[in-house]
Simulated assay, not measured.
Amino acid sequence: MLIGDVARRCGVSVRMLRHYESLGLVRPGGRTGAGYREYSGEDVRRIFHIESLRSLGLSLRAVGQALDDPDFTPTTLVDDLIRRTRARIADETRLLTRLERIDAAGPGDWTDVLQTVALLRALGSSHAAQRQRAALAPVGAVAVEALVEAALGEPDPHVAGALRWAVARAGAAGLPLLAQGLDAPVAAVRDRAVRCLVEIPHDAATALLRDALDHRDVAVRRCAALTLGARGVPEAVPTLVDMVVQEANDVEAADALAALAVDAESADRIAAALVAGLTGDAVASPVRRRLTQALAGIPGERASRALAELAVDADRPVALTATYVLMLRDREP
């Protein structure tokens, strides 16, 4: 088979076939009477093998080694190709993300582009101090998405605080990405997302936190509840009471419950929720003491009646706590 016929059959240019021959990848041994190269069926099969290996990303040198080495093991080659391909995809993904951030910033000229690139590089620096300076710099035309992305991935607590401040300064612009962060598969990312949300004093952020009360991650629920309590959202009460029971930031939870007791109706509803946690023989003494202490911050008749009953409780530490709280209430004007 002549070189032109082989080129058409294999989908390879004549020039490339000659290049393969110059590298020793193909060695057509036959010649026609007129002196033209003549390829055998084995030569054609080898060309197909070369093209198949090239399609996997191998260099021509690696292709030659793979075809000529009798001890060649495909598993080793494929594992190496997977590793290199993943590294290439990671590099390309980072480049794509950077280009998207630049596009979102809406640069007016190359100066804007260079400033955006400089900030993105600073946010991705391996030095925490440089990342912190970047977070505290004026945002300008830089897309808030870059700040949110950095905040969701920042492990250093000092830099993370600066990034949360920067995201909060941008207002509601970063909320869509933060909402995605709440559903991230990694717990640390979910925690960073909710911590960013609690620092954004915006109705839309409060709405996301209210939705987070039903989140599958208990840490997200608790962080949201503490902030919602301070913002006067009554839906946070069940989670806050559970935090008192579970001794999870129970002092802060009790303070949030007290902040929610803004009127008689709210106070009675909160007192009833705390009293409900006191009932039952299986409730441990430390739990009952924490609930009694939480009742101390709740005004109104419902809480006072509960404390009066607890003052004669069989659990002496609970009774002493309730007695002391009642004494303080009697002194109030």
Score class of each variant (00 low, 15 high):
residue 292 T to G: 06
residue 146 A to Q: 04
residue 49 H to R: 15
residue 91 D to L: 10
residue 118 A to T: 08
residue 16 M to S: 13
residue 230 A to Y: 05
residue 198 V to M: 10
residue 146 A to H: 03
residue 216 R to M: 08
residue 245 V to Q: 06
residue 56 L to D: 11
residue 226 L to W: 09
residue 71 D to N: 13
residue 211 D to G: 12
residue 239 T to W: 02
residue 332 E to S: 11
residue 176 P to M: 04
residue 160 A to I: 01
residue 13 S to D: 13
residue 308 A to T: 07
residue 135 A to L: 03
residue 286 P to Y: 04
residue 329 R to W: 04
residue 150 A to I: 02
residue 166 A to W: 03
residue 91 D to C: 02
residue 222 R to W: 03
residue 67 L to M: 09
residue 322 A to W: 00
residue 34 A to N: 11
residue 12 V to S: 07
residue 95 L to Y: 07
residue 193 A to H: 07
residue 97 T to F: 01
residue 88 R to D: 12
residue 181 G to R: 00
residue 203 D to G: 14
residue 58 L to E: 12
residue 234 P to T: 10
residue 298 I to R: 00
residue 272 A to G: 13
residue 172 A to H: 12
residue 196 C to R: 02
residue 147 L to K: 01
residue 189 V to T: 15
residue 267 A to I: 02
residue 195 R to K: 10
residue 328 L to N: 08
residue 333 P to L: 08
residue 133 R to G: 04
residue 45 R to T: 10
residue 217 D to T: 01
residue 276 A to H: 09
residue 104 A to P: 11
residue 133 R to N: 03
residue 129 A to Q: 14
residue 180 Q to H: 13
residue 172 A to S: 14
residue 41 G to N: 10
residue 215 H to S: 09
residue 30 G to C: 09
residue 203 D to L: 12
residue 106 G to A: 13
residue 247 E to P: 00
residue 154 E to C: 12
residue 80 D to S: 11
residue 116 T to E: 05
residue 72 F to V: 12
residue 28 P to S: 08
residue 72 F to P: 01
residue 165 W to G: 09
residue 70 P to K: 07
residue 268 D to Q: 04
residue 107 P to K: 12
residue 50 I to Y: 06
residue 94 R to F: 04
residue 72 F to N: 12
residue 101 R to K: 00
residue 219 A to T: 09
residue 14 V to N: 08
residue 131 R to A: 09
residue 56 L to E: 10
residue 70 P to D: 06
residue 90 A to S: 12
residue 228 L to Y: 08
residue 75 T to V: 14
residue 266 S to A: 15
residue 235 E to D: 15
residue 271 A to D: 07
residue 171 G to F: 10
residue 260 L to Y: 04
residue 219 A to W: 12
